[in-house]
């Protein structure tokens, strides 16, 4: 039967949606319908609030649109419906003013809790400064614990995506992959490497125009504004590669300055960072103004 098939495909869709809720996902999927819960406590909380908002809207929609559809079927002039003459009813008007307020409170309460959580950037174990440039990201490792660092590098669109995205390049975006994932426009030359199970504070600013540093899996989106320093924080538990993009229009290559965050265990991170620090010290020690390895803006 046609209907049975339709029902099965609907159920399959729901199952897929439910599966999204459990599996951490680094890249978007084809035909994806919903937000993914991400990999941090905050991103999970955001997802819960998003779903609660969605359910509330669906419930209200069913009531309101249901009433409209019933009215459109039952009260048709062509079926001989005769119009009533009433035009107000104080009781129901009070009800549908007060009930929505209660529903709003049920939404605002959990949202407030999460906003307060998201704003608490203190007691971080390390700090990374993020700078938006037209059209690349600069990363500075400021400190880990009490130890200051001087590691700085620039992260830009990977060369293959960059070649492919030229007007009528003739190259196939479907063939741009990284780590086995379709990574067209979501890959960079130098990812931001961070440790897992560590409270990281990001301080975010802009160098030229306003950008926004957005990594959906971490639930962070923070505008990078010249002259202003914003902050955000995260704790990532699962090692992995998390991809994001600039989210504030910043000029012609706004679509081409992705973000890649590579989360690795603390020991591995510490080893990587110390290597970078040593390289930075070597580069800075002689008076010669050697350009930074990763290329300067």
């Amino acid at each position: 039967m046609k209907w049975a098939g339709l029902l099965r495909s609907k159920l399959g869709l729901l199952a897929a949606l439910a599966a999204c809720a459990n599996v951490a996902q680094a890249v978007p999927e084809r035909w994806q319908l919903n937000m993914t819960p991400g990999v941090t406590r905050v991103s999970h909380d955001i997802y819960q609030i998003h779903m609660w908002g969605l359910y509330v809207c669906c419930a209200i929609g069913i009531v309101v649109f249901g009433a409209m559809i019933i009215a459109m079927i039952r009260f048709r002039k062509s079926k001989g419906a005769v119009a009533a003459t009433w035009s107000h009813n104080t009781k129901v008007e009070i009800v549908w003013t007060v009930v929505p307020i209660l529903i709003l409170v049920s939404l605002a309460y959990p949202a407030t809790r999460v906003v307060i959580d998201m704003a608490y950037t203190e007691q971080s174990q390390m700090t990374v400064k993020i700078t938006g440039y037209q059209w690349k990201w600069g990363y500075d490792y400021i400190n880990v614990g009490d130890k200051p660092y001087h590691v700085h590098f620039i992260s830009r669109l990977d060369p293959l995506s960059d070649k492919t995205r030229q007007l009528r390049s003739g190259l196939d975006p479907w063939k741009v992959e990284d780590n086995g994932e379709p990574a067209y426009l979501l890959n960079v030359d130098h990812p931001l490497v961070v440790p897992t199970d560590t409270k990281i504070r990001f301080v975010v600013t802009g160098d030229d125009v306003i950008h926004a540093w957005w990594v959906p899996a971490l639930g962070i989106k923070q505008d990078a504004i010249p002259g202003i320093i914003n902050d955000a924080w995260t704790v990532i538990h699962d090692p992995g590669i998390y991809r994001g993009q600039c989210a504030e229009l910043c000029g012609q290559d706004h679509g081409f300055m992705p973000i890649v965050v590579k989360a690795v265990p603390m020991t591995e991170f510490q080893k990587w960072l110390d290597e970078q620090e040593a390289a930075a010290t070597r580069a800075n020690a002689p008076a010669a103004p050697a350009p930074a390895a990763a290329g300067a803006g």
Partner: peptide, 8 residues
């Protein structure tokens, strides 16, 4: 619309 005499 409720209890009206609707035409479309």
């Amino acid at each position: 619309m409720w209890r009206g005499s609707l035409s479309f």
